[in-house]
């Protein structure tokens, strides 16, 4: 039984009860404009008889019965309403649960998709960054190697250019003041012999 049926039952019971009360409710005697002389007082007789049948006790009895029936109906309908309400609540809970699960599932799916997308974007970004870093590292490495080679070559060239001075300096440091001019005479005479012709020519031209 759903809520509409319960409401319909309650409404029908209330209508029956109202009709019963209306019919049993004591009414005032109508003051007839017709002259009581012309018609027999049947109505008053019927009323009198009915008053005899439906006396106060009987009415009270009917009221009690009506009240009891009304209470019974009310209780039954309340029970039905309670059951229906419980069922409705259960259904509502189930519905809410399903809806919430569905919504949560959808949201989780979206969230998961979003997370996956963000992760992919982050991975892509990291990958690109890594590639850029690798490129820059390779470029830097090449640049440093080139510079090192250039510096090395520059040092070698400089060393070769100034080799005479460098060797002279190191030889002097090595021998210090130990070498005597007497020891150098052989070297000097060797040079003089090698340049003897030029010196003779120079003297000849000079004189």
């Amino acid at each position: 039984m759903n809520s509409y049926q319960a409401a319909f039952g309650i409404g029908l019971s209330v209508a029956v009860l109202l009709i019963l009360l209306y019919s049993l409710w004591p009414r005032r005697k109508k003051t007839s404009s017709v002259s009581p002389i012309t018609t027999p007082d049947l109505a008053s007789i019927a009323e009198k008889k009915s008053m005899e049948v439906f006396n106060d006790t009987f009415r009270e009895e009917l009221r009690n019965r009506g009240r009891l029936h009304f209470e019974k109906v009310i209780n039954e309908n309340a029970l039905f309403l309670q059951q229906d309400l419980r069922l409705t609540t259960n259904e509502l809970n189930t519905f809410m649960k399903d809806e919430i699960q569905k919504v949560l599932k959808d949201e989780f799916s979206k969230y998961e998709a979003s997370i996956t997308s963000a992760r992919d974007i982050a991975l892509e970004s990291i990958k690109k960054t890594q590639e850029v870093i690798d490129q820059q590292r390779a470029q830097l490495e090449k640049q440093m190697n080139d510079q090192a080679a250039e510096e090395k070559q520059r040092l070698i060239d400089r060393f070769e250019t100034n080799m005479a001075d460098i060797l002279n300096h190191y030889i002097l440091d090595a021998i210090g003041g130990e070498i005597d001019l007497t020891d150098q005479l052989e070297y000097i005479f060797q040079n003089l012999e090698e340049n003897k012709k030029a010196i003779l020519e120079d003297v000849k031209n000079g004189s």
Partner: peptide, 22 residues
């Protein structure tokens, strides 16, 4: 440092070790 430098009337002869190394 090592060797000698000879300067004649119009020429100069470098007999130094530096010149030799050069």
């Amino acid at each position: 440092s090592v060797g000698a430098v000879l300067r004649t009337q119009s020429k100069q002869y470098d007999f130094s070790l530096r010149k030799h190394l050069q």
